[in-house]
Design a protein around this nucleic acid. Structure first.
Length: 489
RNA sequence: GGCCCUAUCGUCUAACGGUUAGGACGGAGGCUUCUCAAGCCUUAAAUCGGGGUUCGAUUCCCCGUAGGGUCACCA
């Protein structure tokens, strides 16, 4: 390759949110730029006013920021080449358009849309591909600067080009036609604007999904007419729906990536997951930080074939990254999903953290754990139980339940204060050490079931040791006393 | 329909002519166990089909087949 500094760009149109497909394209572009110490540009392609959705630009930036895909130039970051928003670069496109007109490479479209549509229908009826260039006006009028402008393909020929992923590609004359450069509303088309901008912005590697392969001959033809050296084309494989029947798209339920944040996915997990759809370092490692990915990323390792989106795997990645989080960071994430009644300054909050970390794959599972049937609901609400519930199903005797609860109560009451530390795991270990021999001797279920249900009042919950450690000494003893009172009533 | 692209377990993938085709997710079974998770162990599961080339093809070539993409004043 040459020694130009690597510049990549992600160029979404502001038509709504970003889904996984778009983000993966952004990610690969970002990784490649960072790996080479180059620049990553966020360019907004808002040349279709009709489809534009209010607020999209900010939303797109939020999504990229969430994933920590920092851009060097963008709508909010001044660039040496001017605005990164295409609607603010109209004068530039017009200038290039005039250059093309002057060189005889462009001409105003003399037909109305209805007329063009008629040509198209005729071609269709004749079962022939519609080509505008077959209807080129014999003599081009001068361009008044507002009429739609068409590119006059200088040379109808077979194009061959190289793609960093797909290798040598080619397409014939049928892929070439006189496409629109400037629309009647004064905006350029994507086909025109992106080529002008990529050139002006020094973009060296264009990464995009494979739907653009078939228009590459048109692009090459335009690069040629403009006298611009084309960038390296890097065609990314599509991300398929989980049933693999088609490309993942918004209509197929592809959701806003920011929704994953709401559900409690970690950005690291999302990045890790997406990096491994369509790329693989060639080793058996799977869990990577973004820094790891930057170090390992290679264009040669990008796949040709599409890969399906698989939420189970994403969930697994999320758990892996939850396990990697620092305590502080885990606490911060967990706090947003915990009920308000648990203050982040409370002992309960600190005691809960290691238990939550052990259990969850997704942060929003925390909300459910404190819901009505949640397994940790007991931690914030004293149990209301029926006597029968306290009885071990294999030996439902009130006397035995009373006896075991009383004994367990005594054993844990004897524990010193240090045993009840806020370190839940070690507190639970102390409590277990106190009760376990007795439980072993009497029958584990016989002892542990009444103790646990006495503490939690729940069918499902953490084990009695962890439950007691969470509740703390006073609350635990109090609940056991209440259970005893119930049994003896 | 024309043109273009793609093809390894259900899914993500490893293999860059020579492996008992490996790993991961998910599945199944087991261990652990008072319940629910987590964790650990074991296991089933793939080279789309047919021709070549080669001593030898997942790998290279051709033809099928299947899937995808694209044929806009959308990007």
């Amino acid at each position: 390759m040459d020694n130009k500094p690597v510049v990549t760009r992600f160029a979404p149109s502001p038509t709504g949110f970003l889904h996984i497909g778009g983000i993966r394209t952004a990610l690969f572009s970002y990784l490649w730029a960072r790996k080479n110490g180059g620049k990553f540009i966020l360019r907004i392609e808002d040349t279709d006013k009709e489809r534009e959705v209010e607020g999209s630009i900010a939303h797109i930036q939020q999504a990229l920021s969430w994933l920590d895909l920092e851009w060097d130039y963008g709508p909010d970051k001044a660039a040496p080449f001017g605005s990164c928003i295409q609607s603010e670069r109209l004068a530039t496109y017009k200038q290039f358009a005039e250059k093309l007109v002057a060189a005889g490479h462009a001409y105003p479209d003399p037909y109305t849309t209805a007329e063009v549509e008629t040509f198209r229908k005729q071609a269709e009826a004749a079962k022939k591909p519609f080509l505008f260039r077959e209807h080129r006006p014999a003599e081009a009028k001068a361009w008044n600067g507002t009429d739609p402008l068409r590119f006059k393909v200088p040379e109808i020929k077979r194009f061959k080009w190289h793609d960093a992923v797909r290798g040598d590609l080619e397409a014939g004359e049928e892929a070439l036609d006189d496409f629109i450069l400037m629309k009647s509303d004064g905006y350029p088309t994507y086909n025109f604007a992106h080529i002008v901008d990529d050139s002006l912005m020094g973009v060296t590697h264009v990464m995009r999904a494979d739907e653009f392969i078939s228009s590459t001959p048109r692009f090459l033809s335009l690069y040629q007419a403009l006298g611009i050296e084309p960038p390296v084309f890097v065609t990314l494989p599509p991300i398929l729906r989980d049933d693999r029947t088609k490309k993942l798209g918004k209509r197929d339920g592809a959701k806003d990536v920011l929704e994953y944040r709401v559900e409690g996915y970690l950005p690291e997990a999302m990045v890790n997951f997406l990096a491994l759809i369509g790329w693989n370092p060639g080793t058996e490692e799977e869990v990577f930080t973004t820094q790891d990915l930057i170090a390992r990323f290679e264009l040669e390792k990008i796949h040709k074939a599409g890969g399906a989106y698989n939420e189970d795997k994403l969930l697994w990645f999320n758990r892996q990254h939850i396990l990697k989080l620092s305590d502080e960071s885990f606490a911060e994430h967990a706090a947003t999903f915990l009920p308000e009644s648990i203050s982040t300054k409370s002992a309960m909050f600190r005691r809960l953290l290691p238990i939550l970390r052990e259990k969850i794959s997704l942060f929003n599972e925390i909300s459910a754990m404190f819901g009505p049937a949640g397994e940790l609901n007991f931690a914030i609400k004293a149990p209301k139980v029926q006597v029968e519930f306290l009885l071990w199903k294999k030996d439902p005797s009130k006397e035995k339940a009373s006896k075991h609860i009383a004994e367990a109560r005594k054993l844990i009451a004897e524990l010193d204060a240090a045993s009840w530390s806020n370190d839940t795991i070690s507190a639970a270990a102390s409590i277990k050490a106190a009760i376990w021999p007795y439980a072993e001797a009497q029958g584990r279920g016989d002892v542990l079931w009444p103790v646990r249900t006495g503490l939690t009042g729940q069918e499902r919950s953490p084990d009695p040791f962890i439950s007691a450690a969470l509740l703390g000494r006073d609350e635990s003893l109090q609940r056991l006393d209440a259970a005893l009172a119930l049994l003896q009533a």
